[in-house]
């Protein structure tokens, strides 16, 4: 009897459902320890705090009933944090030197150097963060990975930036989708690959429609606009596995998003910001639990493909620069 039931179990293919099972109170108990330690160490604990928070959030995000794991450690991210801080300190010194210099030429040069340095750091930060973050993410022991090259990232970024500037921002929608194509197209989930097929013109349309309807409805439509943007991002993500494609699909609706955003706002206001943990878990619930994988994706058939990678220099840099992607 025992034998046959085991046999049967192995032939059952697990369904690729996504779920977030974190709870605000649990995350709060983590964040409160983090906050105290960060304050006591004058901010130096920040990388460890972030590692713990990510470990919790990953552990509570499930695919086919198995949780993700974040392998990053405070120590790795601390080293990255210090390196990032160093690069930033140099830039800030340049800025302050320019600011305190009497000569207008020097002033201008320093500002330009600061701006250019900052701009040049963004692609580097995205690239470094993607490499680190994906390599430290695993599911059932299978690690994600990032195969993009820094050269291509710079090419995509600066082409997009330049074209956006000379088209007065119109190209920025193609810039966004191209950036997502570059990032997701180079992401690996073991033997599965991601692809992004969002088109700039669709994104432009969503934004034009969102802008005008928000104006006409005195802001009410903004929740539907935000929902459209999230769904546009998610729905355009494909997963390629052994030559077969499946797709992510978000069923987030405007009214769900409205409830989420309004709730988050009220929580933040009435807890004086202390309820931030609930804001995070509510948001994760809304995004992840409304997301499903459509197609033949077989979560049992992933194979390990990635090498080990531990450089966290740009993990925190991306944070410092307020880059929020993926």
């Amino acid at each position: 009897m025992q034998e046959t039931s085991t046999q049967q179990e192995t032939t059952v293919v697990s369904r690729p459902t996504l779920a977030f099972k974190g709870q605000g109170s649990e995350l709060f108990s983590i964040e409160i320890v983090n906050l105290v330690l960060t304050a006591l160490t004058l901010g130096l604990y920040y990388p460890w705090a972030k590692a713990k928070k990510l470990q919790y959030i990953y552990r509570k995000t499930e695919l086919a009933d198995s949780p993700f794991t974040f392998h990053g450690t405070g120590k790795e991210m601390f080293i990255g944090f210090i390196k990032g801080l160093g690069i930033f300190a140099v830039l800030v010194c340049v800025l302050l030197y320019g600011w305190s210099s009497g000569d207008n030429g020097v002033k201008f040069l320093c500002f330009a150097l600061y701006l250019f340095g900052f701009l040049a750091l963004i692609p580097l930060a995205i690239h470094g963060m993607m490499r680190y973050r994906t390599s430290r993410t695993s599911w059932r022991g299978i690690h994600m990975g990032y195969r993009g090259t820094l050269g291509n990232m710079y090419k995509v970024y600066f082409t997009g930036f330049f074209l956006s500037v000379i088209t007065f921002g119109i190209y920025s929608f193609w810039f966004t989708t191209n950036l997502h194509k570059e990032i997701l197209g180079n992401m690996r989930f073991g033997s599965a690959k991601f692809r992004y097929i969002g088109d700039g013109s669709d994104l432009l349309l969503i934004n034009v429609k969102g802008y005008f309807l928000t104006l006409f409805t005195l802001g009410i439509y903004s929740f539907w606009w935000a929902k459209d943007l999230i769904n546009f991002y998610i729905d355009n993500i494909l997963i390629e596995q052994d030559g077969k494609y499946s797709r992510l699909n978000s069923s987030l609706t405007g009214s769900k998003y409205f409830v989420l955003a309004l709730g988050n706002l009220l929580i933040l206001v009435f807890t004086l910001g202390l309820g931030y943990a609930w804001v995070v878990t509510r948001t994760m619930h809304a995004i992840v639990n409304n997301c499903e994988i459509i197609g033949d994706f077989n979560p049992d058939a992933l194979a390990q493909t990635e090498e080990e990678y531990k450089n966290a220099t740009f993990e925190d840099m991306a944070d410092m620069m307020d880059i929020g992607i993926v």
Partner: peptide, 28 residues
């Protein structure tokens, strides 16, 4: 049990011994 090479979960029996954990797994 997951062996770190594939994502396939293998049915396993886990025994807690005094100084180690024993994992007995089995597939078809």
């Amino acid at each position: 049990y997951y062996n770190g090479r594939t994502s396939k979960g293998m049915p396993a029996f886990i025994t807690l011994e005094p100084n180690h954990i024993r994992v007995n797994w089995q597939t078809d």
